[in-house]
């Protein structure tokens, strides 16, 4: 029982720490790609804490304030459903299909909050975010189905267990893994899919009115978000991990490759992004699905 409680408290903290560490590393690596020295490694911590201790905060209403809170609550919920290095709290309470919806809770809560900021920039941002979500969901669903059929289960712990001994989905279903990687870009809003917050177009979109502790909470939820998306990828395709260090290293490998592509691509327009996702990733994912079906 005590162990359960410890895990329940520890899992979100570890997830947050991992997500935050990726945010730190990202800024440093990006700076080096851009031929800069870059900020100190713990700069994101300073940023988040500074935002939290702002003396003045504004709110456009209850829903506006609830947005970041729901975003974090949804993220914490999702963390419990993703097997994290050997232990998994709630994988028995909801499977992969449920997880796809659980992962949407945070985004939808955030969308509600941003909508309440009464700013068209935010509205356009959300409209783009949901459209993009619709875009990458199609290939995501197809690869999730392929993986579920491959292992005849939708339970994530079982999927991870089935990949033990290096029998990763990455090797058995390489096409799905590639699509999963591309989908993760969209889900994380990295270039070229940073359409939602594109500052030159919609002035950071949904975050346009958020400042102070609200923005700090959004940054925390972004750290969770990075963790969730990449951990899901690792669990689905890289066989999870039995201890936290290997898990971290696998996640880091995925994230590192992502940043490498991230900084050399201009961004899509939103409808082009949806068209892109519904064209090549979908076709490739379908091919992979048919391979699974035929096998």
């Amino acid at each position: 029982m005590v162990k359960m409680i410890l895990i329940a408290i520890g899992a979100p903290l570890v997830a947050f720490a991992i997500g935050l560490s990726f945010m730190m590393i990202k800024r440093k690596i990006v700076a080096r790609i851009q031929r800069r020295y870059g900020p100190t490694i713990i700069q994101p911590i300073y940023d988040v804490l500074k935002l939290l201790v702002k003396e003045d905060n504004i709110s456009h209403g209850v829903i506006f304030s609830l947005g970041p809170i729901i975003a974090i609550a949804g993220s914490i919920l999702a963390v419990f459903f993703i097997p994290m290095a050997g232990f998994s709290m709630l994988t028995g309470s909801g499977d992969l299909i449920a997880l796809l919806y659980i992962m949407a809770i945070g985004s939808l809560g955030m969308a509600l909050g941003a909508g309440d900021s009464a700013n068209p920039n935010a509205s356009i941002g959300i409209s783009r975010a949901l459209t993009l979500m619709f875009g990458y969901d199609l290939p995501l669903v197809i690869i999730v189905i392929s993986v579920a059929l491959q292992y005849h289960t939708t339970n994530l712990s079982d999927i991870v267990a089935a990949q033990a001994n290096g029998n990763w989905t990455l090797w058995t279903l390489p096409l799905s893994a590639i699509v999963g990687f591309v989908v993760t870009y969209g889900a994380l809003g990295e270039h070229p899919f940073d359409i939602v917050t594109a500052p030159h177009e919609v002035a950071t979109g949904p975050m346009v009115e958020y400042g102070g502790k609200h923005l700090g909470f959004l940054m925390i939820s972004h750290a969770f978000h990075i963790y969730i998306e990449i951990a899901l990828f690792v669990d689905l395709f890289l066989g999870g991990a039995s201890n936290i260090l290997i898990f971290y290293l696998k996640m880091f490998a995925v994230f590192f490759i992502m940043i490498m592509f991230d900084e050399v691509l201009p961004r899509f327009k939103i409808d082009d992004a949806v068209r892109f996702y519904w064209k090549w990733p979908t076709v490739v994912a379908l091919i992979s699905l048919i391979i699974v079906l035929v096998k």
């Binding site: 100190t40 700069q43 504004i58 975050m207 346009v208 958020y210 400042g211 102070g212 923005l215």
Partner: peptide, 10 residues
């Protein structure tokens, strides 16, 4: 730790 940010709230 200086960075440009977009809106007045941030």
């Amino acid at each position: 730790g200086l960075a440009p940010y977009v809106t007045s709230r941030q």
